[in-house]
């Protein structure tokens, strides 16, 4: 009985420390971070068009496409496809994605397509594509928007991040915002 009372009292004390003082302190400190602890947003003409870290659906021809998403870029219900590598239905889906890419991006070969453009991300919210994933879309973008190909290619290059550690990547939302501003 004494142990139980001690347990209850210790639980209450630790709750105050770990569930009130600690998180409120961090929350307060995060006000100094970008996005003030609410997540950093990207604004165009005073309107929020998205979160810097969250991928969103881009499937119209005039925009650089994001990766496939198992949840349709639902930022309130993240998930991967959880399809196994040998699943026949899944492989059919991948094959369809390849066909779609080949259809909308004339001039590219199968071997130009990087794996990330035909596979769903882990979160369903991947904000990035690989540089190769952007490069295969340059032709299409230039044609649809009647822009100079060189100019689009330069834009992709400018938005390619090559960190010291980890893979190179292109943030799709930021790239598309810049694309809309391109004359």
């Amino acid at each position: 009985m004494k142990t139980l009372v001690q347990s209850i009292r210790l639980t209450l004390v630790l709750t105050a420390l770990l569930c009130v003082i600690y998180p409120v302190f961090i929350s307060f400190a995060s006000k100094m971070a970008k996005g003030k602890g609410n997540g950093e947003t990207i604004t165009v003409n005073g309107k929020v068009v998205g979160y810097a870290l969250l991928g969103q659906k881009f499937d119209k021809p005039q925009y650089f496409w994001s990766r496939p998403s198992a949840v349709g870029y639902n930022a309130a219900g993240s998930a991967g496809s959880n399809k196994g590598p040998s699943n026949p239905d899944y492989l059919k889906e991948v094959s369809n994605r390849i066909d779609t890419l080949l259809k909308y991006n004339p001039g590219i070969k199968r071997s130009d397509i990087p794996a990330d453009m035909v596979t769903a991300s882990g979160s369903g919210l991947d904000p990035d594509i690989s540089p190769a994933g952007a490069i295969i879309q340059i032709n299409r973008i230039a044609a649809v928007r009647k822009l100079d190909e060189q100019k689009v290619a330069a834009l992709v290059k400018e938005h390619t991040e090559k960190p010291m550690f980890g893979p190179a990547k292109v943030n799709v939302l930021k790239l598309n915002v810049a694309l809309d501003e391109l004359k």
Binding site: P23, A29, S30, A33, N38, K47, V49, Y73, N74
Partner: peptide, 30 residues
């Protein structure tokens, strides 16, 4: 603190909503 300063939310604000560049309404859990 490392996470919060790299962009992980840390405030008590609930779901947010915005209109994406393609015009979809997106709800964001935070």
């Amino acid at each position: 603190l490392i996470l919060a300063f790299n962009g992980t939310p840390a405030s008590y604000a609930g779901k947010d909503q915005f209109i994406s560049m393609q015009g979809d309404t997106v709800n964001v859990s935070r």
